[in-house]
Design a protein around this nucleic acid. Sequence first.
DNA 1: AGGTGAATACGACGGTGCGTAGTACAAACT
DNA 2: AGTTTGTACTACGCACCGTCGTATTCACCT
Lengths: 150, 150
Amino acid sequence: MPHSTNAPRLGDLERVVMERLWDAATAAGGNASGSTVREVHESIEQDRDIAYTTVMTVLDRLAKKQLVTRERDGRAWRYLPADSREVMTARTMRRTLDDMEVTDRRAALLHFLDGASTDEIADLKAALAEVEARAAGGSAAPGSAPPPGR
Amino acid sequence: MPHSTNAPRLGDLERVVMERLWDAATAAGGNASGSTVREVHESIEQDRDIAYTTVMTVLDRLAKKQLVTRERDGRAWRYLPADSREVMTARTMRRTLDDMEVTDRRAALLHFLDGASTDEIADLKAALAEVEARAAGGSAAPGSAPPPGR
DNA sequence: AGGTGAATACGACGGTGCGTAGTACAAACT
DNA sequence: AGTTTGTACTACGCACCGTCGTATTCACCT
């Protein structure tokens, strides 16, 4: 068993495809109907040359990695992201932090914050506050509305 | 040019080797003299069978990726990590957050915190406080001692 | 019912990264 | 001078990914 990356990692094209899927989903206003291969293909082809089947293969592999799900729509499949960009990002970040066996986690987080903009710090504080509120006050909806629409 | 992951990613063995280097460095009490191939090899071999040259190759590739540096020591090289575990971890996390073009960063951070232990939250708050103190009060040493020895 | 087109399924090829290691060569100690 | 110690270079196998071609299926139209 040569090597094995525990959680699947995205290639360049795979990332692009995910991007289109996410964009399509949010553009559709949360209507999670998903995109067909054709739709994704046409979207990407506006930016660069790519074969229809290439997109199909990538979508297929993403499905095998369970990064997207798909459901029938006539004879075609509609693909949709298994998780939001945000969830995937969070999961990857967490995996990084857990994988490196950081002895001094605080120092690591400090370095992380070093590269953060003030905006980001604000976001982080807000998130922190929310987690704490949730932990303290039960699971009721937090004071602020659910994560802003954009 | 098929694909290209911008920042180098660690394989399993590469990670193990980095681990040994870091451990050796901290064990030596911050004395950053580095480890020889032989030392790393002997260390790993206590846990599993591995050829001397395999370790050498890995070390070599890590050097090419600039994840470790090396300096002559007689006829041998001494390898040392280019960055601390903490810095590398932070950088990887940051890259993840930046790469995914997260529209709702706060939501992403929220998800990230969801998976955090209370300890981790405490570490994060401490780090946050420190960054703010640093930003406000100038670059003088923070009130609390420098990052705890472990 | 046969042809046409849309869509998928399957597989293939080339490049790269990584785990793995052998061999060839240089330097140094004995 | 020979044995050790250490490096440099090369190589192989396999998995992943970008890339696409071909075969096949399925529904529909005429």
